[in-house]
Design a protein around this nucleic acid. Structure first.
Lengths: 159, 159
DNA sequence: CCTGAAAACAGACCCCC
DNA sequence: GGGGGTCTGTTTTCAGG
């Protein structure tokens, strides 16, 4: 069993400023971040380490342009189901996690049970995904919303 | 005026493997990436530079745990509007881009015109956001879907 | 286009304040 | 807990095959 790091860390202004800088560009040098937040190398490094250990931030990643990979279609999928047994749910979650085209999956409150964000090459590829999904698990109703334009997409949280 | 980098770059297998490694952890050393993809430092570095220059990948970032920042509520907002003049649209887009709690905004095909993903501290904070938004621009119908559980959330695209 | 070495650089850890 | 220096490893560059 993996020990989930769940320490309740208090973040002060310096921590938050560092997070902001790292979210903007994680490739910056410590000196540069230190300059931006009005501090010096060592404190910045100590806080980064602290926040990493506490699980406040995950590993750094690069954001890749989907179009460069030929992923030109983005769907939001609204799912209603009639099944709510743990058994069904486990199977459904496993299916979602296994599919790399699913970028986000949330269980919702209210009439709609789940929402997915799915990135695929085109409408045809979405249909392949959809058929595969409903063959794995029973769902009651599925609505796919096709994105025409990505107005905004950011991984940065307001710090 | 910024020159939008829009070169159509062909990515071969080595490029894609490098992207996969960087998406998993952008903090790895070149040697380690080179080892993973079965190549050597310099070629890996050349391709990274090429892809950066071509805009295939953006700057590296860190993924921050929303709960650590006290952002415990996530809403998907479905918006219908009756207004479709460019003037209204410009104002709407500007409002979305200006609000840091909006993590994603897409213009959709079909009955629903827009979908937003909004991260806030709690339901109260969402209402503040919502009231502010509808006071800035007229919308016809708004449905907010509250996320109960984030089943999956990844920034990594299938490469 | 890759290999290997050399130079510039930044990250990790120290002691002192 | 922050300031500054130092050592180590990494990034970046470049000559050569």
């Amino acid at each position: 069993m993996t020990t989930e790091t769940r320490k309740p860390v208090r973040l002060d202004d310096l921590d938050r400023n560092i997070l902001r800088a790292l979210q903007a560009d994680a490739g910056q040098s410590l000196d540069e971040i230190a300059r931006q937040v009005g501090s010096s190398k060592t404190p910045v490094w100590n806080r980064i380490r602290k926040m990493r250990d506490a699980g406040v931030m995950g590993p750094s990643t690069v954001v890749v342009d989907p179009e460069a990979l030929g992923l030109e279609a983005c769907f939001f999928v609204l799912i209603r189901t009639s099944e709510h047994e743990t058994d069904w749910q486990q199977k459904f979650l496993a299916a979602l996690r296994a599919r790399p085209e699913v970028q986000e999956a949330h269980r919702l409150a209210g009439e709609i049970d789940y929402i997915l964000k799915v990135r695929v090459a085109n409408a045809r590829a979405y249909d392949v995904f959809y058929q595969a999904l409903i063959s794995e698990v029973r769902v009651f109703n599925v609505t796919a919303l096709l994105s025409m334009e990505e107005i905004k997409s950011t991984v940065a949280l307001p710090v």
